[in-house]
Design a protein around this nucleic acid. Structure first.
Lengths: 205, 205, 205, 205
DNA sequence: CATGAATGAGATTTCATTCAT
DNA sequence: TATGAATGAAATCTCATTCAT
């Protein structure tokens, strides 16, 4: 390996690392202040550089959001696909999906918050159509799972399936707004209690 | 009633009505596009007037958000206070609160959406400190209710009370993001099914 | 005189009176806040009516300024012309002019302040060219008087005449900015002391 | 001195210089058109940049006025304080103060004009309270000097001290409105003649 | 890699003015 | 005469983006 080549790799890796750092910062700020209300300058301030300097790394503010969201969704779907491929029963699948969701929140909290708050507006632009795609796949997956669970006798048949779908979807993801990495409860512990509530309800039996 | 008095009342009422109309429009647009991403011009367009004309009725974009949110919160708390004053058992109180929440969503959907999406950011400004106050009272009320329910043997004692609180809070209010007035399910019907899920869970028994 | 005619005169007189009232109010506000910084609404507020209502009486904000200034200037020049026509010596003429100037301030303080502060900017517009005209006549009159005074041996010949002119001009008129009608010193008293200072100086002799 | 340090100083100095340039331009425009009547765009045009670009250097139009005025006042008071510290007699102190005032006008003419025309209105805002403070110190200083002069037998005792104070104050500062740097008369020459008029009067002796 | 100055489009807000009632 | 709602132009200010250094 020539020194030249080592250098090139070194800078490429360094550059990728810097991007990741900056994206993490941007996601944090987008999550806490809202994408539209966040100025590029605020992101740069949080990163300790000047506004214009961000444009060495990224084409635009939008492309930062894009990279934040697509990275998160790719990882999330990879996890979901592993669960779906495992051939579990409906109830076990539901449990595994919820656990994976909380793991996603644990690893990508700011990205999840941005997704929750902004995907609806962003999706109106061509570039973010994959958000709609993801949402559609998500709904499809859950409705199928709920139907299967009712067939298998695992889930109650007397509830409106759309309502149950939205109930679970919102219930899980909205947790990103208050979840703190390294907080009192671990992602797994939260998942366990959420599953208890969702499956068994909160009333004393 | 003298003509003079009728006149004065007439114009005062007319003005209040116009304000209410414009606020309803503004809430709709804030809810669908996000407060920060909504320009004053968009609100004005939706109301069929010019941007500057809004300033005859309101001091600023912020004061519109203020009036939208405080009107909604006042009404919501009035309803909650009626429930709390009724002296019901913990479980019945919970049911009544959830029903009232969905009624609030039914009557003030756009305001609720704005509250959900923007209150966190807005609350950083002095003017919107009442949002924090409301949030605190809300949490207090629910934690007390949950504790009472556990004492009364109505609710399971094995769940983390903070988690249950957030679960119910988010689960109910996030429904505003998809609820449609006059949709397939009425507010009462949705409340009933939500209560079934929250109290009894979704698994077959 | 028919009742019809009496009515017409009555309303015409009433209208003129109302105009005068409103102009006095406007002059006060223009003087205290500055013409450009004064909104039509501020004038209307001070008059106890709504902004739009002023347009029943006046064509525009500019026409209010116009009427305020031209009324004042007309009166001032009438007084000056009386003095100039009296055929006094240079020193007596100077004294009489200064006294008349302070009387003008006494009667038209707000108008004088507006004149001091705004005439320079207003004069750029065609409509206010008479301000330049007045200023030119004013300078001419004073320079001639100073020259005559030096010839007559009344005034010192060792001073720059332009400088003396500006000294007197500014010195007198700027008093409008602090003069209060009905204050501790009457216009005549102030004129007397000003003349003492201007003519004899402030040093002990 | 390391290159790093030279750089840092270079840019800091360059920035300060640019600010000063822009402020000089702004002061010129404020002085000639009036603060309220001057648009930010006019200032920018005069500086050869776009309106928005000014906001890279200054927070607001108001902050430009602030910096213009406070810079001028600081320098003026420094000069006055040097005079006051010199322990001169009342008459010599008066002469020195008048000379310094004309020097201030010579160096900061636009700022002085802005001060004359706008300080009254600006001072109503909290931010410009130092203008009132300066005005109060100014009056205090002059009244004390006049009293001392009368005691020392240098000034006439038969004049109203408030009136004399205002006479001198206005007389000197209003000169900024017509003074031209590099005009026919130097600041020192004007000061000399003004002092002659103020001290000895304009009448032949 | 980053800076600092600027651009230019567009946002919020202001305000003189109009006009139906 | 006055009101109240609106207009529309222009003002202040913001901000994503560019670019020479």
């Amino acid at each position: 390996m020539s020194p030249r080549r080592r250098d090139a790799e070194g800078t490429a890796a360094a550059r990728a690392e810097r991007r990741a750092e900056l994206l993490a910062t941007a996601a944090e700020v987008f999550a806490s202040q809202g994408y539209a209300a966040t100025t590029v300058r605020k992101v740069a301030d949080a990163a300790g550089i000047l506004g214009g300097s961000l444009y060495y790394h990224f084409d635009s503010k939008e492309s930062m959001a894009d990279e934040i969201l697509s990275t998160f969704l790719d990882e999330m779907w990879a996890a979901y696909d592993r669960v779906l491929a495992a051939g579990l029963g409906a109830r076990e699948t539901l449990e595994a999906l919820v656990v994976e969701s909380f793991r996603s929140i644990d690893r990508h909290r700011p990205a999840v918050v941005v997704y929750q708050n902004e995907s609806k507006h962003l999706a109106t632009s061509e570039r973010f159509h994959y958000l709609l795609e993801s949402r559609r796949r998500f709904e499809e997956m859950w409705l199928a799972l709920l139907d299967r669970g009712i067939e298998e006798g695992a889930f109650r048949p007397d509830l409106d399936r759309s309502l149950v779908y939205r109930f679970i979807r919102d219930t899980v993801w909205v947790a990103a707004t208050w979840y703190q990495t390294g907080g009192r409860l671990s992602a797994e512990e939260i998942a366990k209690q959420y599953l208890a509530m969702v499956l068994e309800g909160i009333q004393a039996s």
